[in-house]
Each structure stands twice: as C-alpha cells, then as structure tokens.
Amino acid sequence: MGDDSIEILNLQTGKEETVYTFGHYIRHMIADVRAKNAVPVLLSLTARNRWKSSRIERGSGQYGYWSYQLAWELDIAFIDVTNPMADLLEQMGPEKAAELYPKDHTHFATEGAHLHAQTIIAGLKGLRPGLESAWFSELGQQIEPREWAWLRLPFPADARKSSIFLVGDSTVRNGAGDGANGEWGWGDYLDEKLSTKSHNIVNRAVGGLSSRTFVTGGHWQRALNMMKAGDVVLLQFGHNDAAPLNDETRARGTIPGVGEEYEDIDNLLTGEAERVHSYGWYLRQMIGQAKARGITTIVCSPVPRKAWRDGLIQEATDSYPQWALQVARQSQSPFIDLYQLVSDKYNRLGRRQVEKLFADKHTHTSKSGAELNAEVVALQLKPLLAL
C-alpha cells in the first residue's frame, strides 16, 4: 500500500526494474483514468473455488481490502465482488460450484463469468450517483440493483485474524460512514479506541434500519456469512424499532418487548405478506444463528438521545435498554449498557457541553460525540475480550 520499492533484474525482460507496492500501481492507474475525465471504480477480487469444510475462501490475501482502503483514500466508488459471489457459491455447495471452475480454482467457465458479471452490474446499479439505465443491455436491465452498494460496507481486512463485527443502526454507522452532515457513528472510531492488532473491526451497521429490517433486508445474513468461529458480534438496535410496523415509506417497526407475539401484515412498502415479531424476537434470531457458528454475541442497549428532563438525560423505563438486557440474560450473552453508561457521561458534562456532541437535534452524534461513545464501548470490551 505504501511507497516502498525494490530494485530487481527482471529475469523475463533481462532489464533492471524498480518494483513498487500494489497500492502504488493502483494509484497510478486511477490517476491515469481521472486524467481522461473518466470515473474509476475499484472492485474486490473475483471468488476462487477454494474450500475449507463448507466455507469458501473470501479473497486471496489482503488485496481486496487494500482496494477497499484505496477507494476510501482516493474517494472513489467500490464494489465488493468477493463476498456476494462467495455467498452465492456457498449456497450452491462445493460440487455445483466446481462445475463453474473446470480448469482450476481461479478461472471460471461461461456460467461463472456471467454470475460474476451480474454481481458487478448489481453493484454498479447500487452506486450513488449511478449509471443511466441506457448504459445497460436488456440483460443488465433485468438485474436487481444492490441498493446498499453506495454504503461501501467493510469486510474483514485479514482472514488470518478474528473479527469484531458491529451490527446496528445509524448511531453505530451513519450513512456511508464518511461523516456527511457532520454525523458519525461510534463504530467509526472503535478501531482507534480499542487499538488492537489481534482483531479486525468490521462495522456492518446500516442507518435507518431496525432489528427487523436489518434481518429482512438481508444485512444480517450477509454479515453472518463473513463470520467464522471465534469471531465476536456486537448488536445495538432500538432507535428505529419504535417506528410504525406498516407504512409506505420504511415499514420498520417491531412489536414492543421481548415476547413471542406476532402480527401478520400486508407490507405497504414491499407489497408482500409479512409476519412481524417483537424486538426481542429479532435479537434472539441473530444471537442464536451467531452462536450456532461459534461466534460470541454481545448485546448493547441503544445509546441515548439528547433528551433532557429536569436537567438530566431522560431515563428509559420498560423500553429498549431494558428489553436488550432481558435478551442478553435469556441468551446468556454479555451486556453493555450503553444507554446508562453514556447517559452518566452526558449528565456529568451537562447540557451545554453535550450540545457539542451532536450533529442534529437529538440523535446523531458529531465526531467528538461518536468518539466519546466509542471510548465507552472500548472500555467495556477490553476486559470482556481480554484485549
């Protein structure tokens, strides 16, 4: 990635050559593209047909993640090809996947090429701004966009390490995680506050989602597919779960509490029938599926909003912080009471100082607010994970 170089005598050309890093060559190509007023898009690697048990390799070395880092460094679009293709191949299974790679584990036949192309087109259609529809062929027009591609969600940087995954809403990762409108999530700064070299930090939180829509929108499954035994996942939901169960805009609410009750609806947003469960039910689904894979689950109560009552942050009673604790106890998962811990800090700071910690009226934190919340999380995580 850096500016390192070595001098070699190229055995193929017979000439002396200065060899640079992967990052150097990619930067050079991107500069050339921009010099022609064209738009560069970086991709992660195509999937290779290399399996370990029932799991397929997700990227060769760190080249995919280096491309992801370069996309951030150079402020260009990024499309993850590796993980969507790995998800698809794992669904197919080793035998059927092998039919796509008749020669070796790297080069695919026509059907494999089509599947990779469809993955890339779905990503292109999910960028913001995206390509005009006229750019796509009749086949391309039929491909559903990967609507979240513009978010540039991360994936494990180094497959050799264990990972700490974060799932949640915009208080964990706001928008594309780039500080738009001065709004940041605490997950953006957890890596800095933990300062660990033994774990990848993978912030898969998506703004605007509830525990329900994180599951029904496929975000949980995509994150789970990246996890392996020994990994850790932090779950923080609640801010959006109080929204309406059914409407034409987001349809993201959950039934209050942690019970087994449900409501059958005709979802006005998706046009499909759906069975809506409680907040606790969705958390238990995620926790159960993670634990079944040998993943440690840690439940967090939602961070507090900037809502004052009698000079103090408004206390929550019989609400999401208490329900998150109940689920943690039911599932025997460690619990981080972010609502109380952060509220205590806000109360000590006082109303005037806390104002600087928010970038909007009462929900989304500024950089300094996100850093404060991340420090609270890090202080709780270090003893839990022996970091």
Rank of each mutant, 00 (worst) to 15 (best):
G187K: 02
L283T: 11
P145L: 00
L312S: 02
Y101R: 01
D264E: 14
L88H: 09
A176L: 01
L43R: 14
T196N: 09
I201T: 07
I295W: 09
P129A: 04
V299N: 09
G288V: 13
L341M: 05
L89D: 01
L166M: 10
D178P: 00
R48T: 12
S366L: 02
L70D: 08
A35E: 13
L349N: 00
I164S: 05
L349Y: 01
N267E: 12
S162T: 10
S44T: 15
L70P: 04
L381V: 08
G123I: 04
E375V: 01
L268C: 07
E7P: 00
D87R: 10
A97G: 06
V303K: 02
R58H: 10
L89M: 12
K15I: 15
L139T: 05
A307L: 13
N246A: 12
H219L: 12
K96F: 10
C300Y: 09
A223Y: 00
P102T: 11
K306A: 08
Y339F: 15
S301G: 13
Q285L: 15
R152I: 03
T13N: 12
S137C: 10
W323T: 09
L115T: 01
D231E: 09
K345D: 03
E272N: 15
I336D: 05
V232R: 06
E261N: 14
E147R: 14
E138C: 04
Q91C: 04
Y279T: 08
V303S: 07
L283F: 11
D158W: 07
R50I: 11
R252L: 12
D247F: 00
F78M: 08
V33N: 12
I265K: 07
V206M: 03
E111I: 13
Y189K: 06
G140I: 13
M286P: 04
L235M: 14
G182W: 01
S343M: 06
S67D: 10
V41P: 04
K193W: 02
A307W: 08
G294A: 13
T213D: 08
I313S: 01
K161S: 06
D169S: 10
Q322K: 14
Q322V: 09
G230V: 03
D3E: 15
Q62A: 12
G179V: 09
F136K: 04
W220T: 11
A113F: 14
T363G: 01
Y339L: 01
S211F: 02
D169F: 00
T13F: 14
A242Q: 15
L283Q: 08
G218W: 01
G187F: 00
L325H: 15
P256D: 09
L385S: 03
F78D: 10
R252H: 02
L42C: 11
A386D: 10
L234Y: 02
I26L: 14
P321L: 05
D231Q: 07
Q326M: 11
D75M: 06
